[in-house]
């Protein structure tokens, strides 16, 4: 993994970073297997170079983009974000990448566009987990356009000063730190602007458990476990989960007037 050139930013919760080996070997990436250790064991099969992303839907500049044409590697910045998994554990991760808004602006969303839909690679040869029908492949996720344009929404291409490892979603992945981790879709091959709410994988799999928004919310429990607390990886005790994962100041306004109990 090549070291990257990037600028530091003020996006830093000031908490201890989760060790690199934990971030790169404790992963949920079902395309590479169901155990947390499977992605780091199996993701060597993935070929992140060359990579191209299909941009379609309500944009001024649709087409197949080479990775280098989509991501401005001269504008890379580091952002340290909390990551809260829906399973009740969390990490603090030093991502490197570019704001999602900067990518979308380049593509030129048209005035009718309301949502952004993302898709993960689903290649049987590179991803051994694809042969099991755990989810309806390919993995799909989506955001509202205001969410996608929010300053926090980020496209990560690096981690801990280097290129992002395959098991963490190489070569480019979404990071939306105020939502549960499964919203932060990995190894993106398609970005589509649309006026209709896109399907999301976990919602299709169990709509009573996973909603479209999936904002981190300690007051709305997952049907199978409480979301009030979380275990920071590396810590023995559990700590209180923060509303919007502690990013309420930046994102709460996106949801004014929305019943978060119903729109979970």
């Amino acid at each position: 993994l090549q070291p990257l050139t990037y600028s530091k930013t003020a996006y830093n919760p000031g908490e201890d970073l989760t060790p690199e080996d934990a971030i790169t070997s404790y992963n949920n990436f079902y395309e590479f297997g169901l155990d947390k250790s499977n992605p780091s064991e199996n993701a060597w099969r993935l070929e992140p170079k060359p990579w191209s992303v299909k941009v379609s839907g309500m944009v001024d500049a649709p087409g197949d983009y080479a990775f280098e044409d989509l991501i401005d590697m001269k504008a890379l910045e580091e952002r340290i974000y909390r990551l809260r998994c829906v399973e009740g554990w969390s990490m603090v991760v030093p991502w490197i990448g570019v704001p999602l808004a900067s990518v979308l602006k380049k593509l030129g969303p048209q005035s009718g566009a309301k949502y952004v839909a993302f898709e993960t690679l689903a290649d049987r040869d590179q991803m051994p987990g694809i042969r099991y029908p755990v989810l309806d492949w390919p993995y799909v996720e989506g955001l509202t356009l205001p969410e996608a344009m929010n300053e926090l929404a980020f496209i990560a291409v690096g981690l801990y000063g280097k290129e992002i490892p395959n098991q963490n979603g190489a070569p480019l992945r979404l990071v939306v730190p105020w939502k549960y981790g499964f919203k932060s879709i990995k190894s993106i091959v398609s970005i589509k602007l649309t006026d209709r709410k896109p399907a999301t994988s976990w919602n299709k799999s169990a709509s009573n458990e996973y909603g479209f928004y999936s904002n981190v919310n300690p007051e709305v429990d997952h049907p199978r476990w409480s979301q009030a607390r979380e275990r920071r990886i590396g810590e023995f005790s559990r700590r209180k989960t923060l509303m919007f994962n502690g990013y309420g100041e930046q994102v709460a306004h996106l949801y004014t007037g929305l019943d978060l109990e119903k729109n979970f």
């Binding site: 755990v134 976990w202 169990a206």
Partner: peptide
């Protein structure tokens, strides 16, 4: 079965 997520064989 209920504890696992998605459709799993194990």
């Amino acid at each position: 079965i209920m504890m696992r997520k998605g459709f799993q064989f194990e």
